[in-house]
């Protein structure tokens, strides 16, 4: 079996394991979809004038897609890898001939698959239940942003798992690192009237760049294919930084207590 086939098998088994773990699967899927339903119901019929008179739900869906992506690629991956390391799974894997890249590619690809399933569910539910206006013209930019965002947050997830001392600490560290950013990144509500310093802080981080890039593709004022250069370049920079950090911080052995 060649290495690509090994990676593909890894994905298959990671997926099996993911869907059998009720806690992981339910949390990853329930939160974004629940937020979508609640916020969309609360704000149904509302339009945002400053944003080209976009319906609230159409504004809200890309933010939820970003949130789902971060859950699957960052939160979930980082916690899962820390648990795997802490429980000695990574050490066991290290003792087999599986190439590092094939094993990690399997982990990352599995997270990306979950992201895309979540994307189709979120947008699908939005379109069917809440009349979200999906633009096919900007789909190229949308999918490019989604793919780059997934790569970026997977790299950061692997890097952060290297910083978590053990499985018990992982959920706290990972959630604490991302939660505040959710609120300064214009995911749940537009930050057009927020203080400038707050939005400036948000713009430094990939959470905002991802959400903004996805919102751009849903924005009725957007012309062209939906590629937001500023967001994409920033995400690329974070991807590179995350990858460098991941390579430096990744560990196979549990940290000695």
């Amino acid at each position: 079996m060649n290495d690509a086939a090994i990676a593909a098998r890894q994905v298959r088994f990671e997926q099996k394991a993911f869907w059998r773990n009720p806690a992981g699967a339910v949390f990853t899927f329930a939160f974004p979809l629940l937020f979508l339903v609640i916020f969309s119901t609360l704000n149904s019929g509302m339009r945002i004038e400053e944003r080209g008179n976009i319906s609230f739900v159409t504004f809200f869906v890309p933010g939820i897609v970003a949130f789902g992506l971060v859950s699957a690629c960052y939160t979930n991956l980082a916690i899962r890898m820390t648990i795997s390391r802490d429980f000695g799974i990574l050490k066991r894997v290290r003792g087999t001939p599986v190439p590092t890249w094939a094993y990690l590619a399997g982990q990352v690809a599995s997270s990306v698959i979950i992201t895309f399933i979540l994307f189709f569910l979120t947008v699908g539910l939005g379109v069917v239940a809440f009349g979200v206006e999906f633009r096919t013209g900007t789909a190229a930019g949308l999918f490019a942003t989604l793919a780059l965002g997934a790569a970026c947050f997977c790299a950061l997830g692997l890097a952060v798992s290297g910083m978590c001392p053990n499985a018990d600490a992982a959920p706290a560290i990972v959630n604490f690192s991302i939660f505040p950013l959710l609120f300064v990144s214009g995911i749940f509500f537009p930050l057009d009237n927020a203080p400038a310093w707050l939005t400036a802080v948000g713009k430094v981080f990939p959470m905002q760049q991802l959400a903004d890039g996805l919102q751009y593709a849903f924005d009725p004022r957007t012309t062209g294919l939906g590629f937001n250069a500023r967001d994409l370049w920033s995400l690329l920079a974070w991807t590179v930084a995350g990858s460098v950090l991941a390579v430096r911080l990744f560990r196979w052995d549990p940290v000695k207590k």
């Binding site: 099996k16 394991a17 059998r20 795997s84 799974i89 050490k91």
Partner: peptide, 15 residues
């Protein structure tokens, strides 16, 4: 060519 059986090593719990 080697097989390693360590102490206290985990394995994917849901497979």
């Amino acid at each position: 060519r080697i097989g390693i059986v360590l102490q206290e090593t985990g394995v994917e719990r849901f497979l």
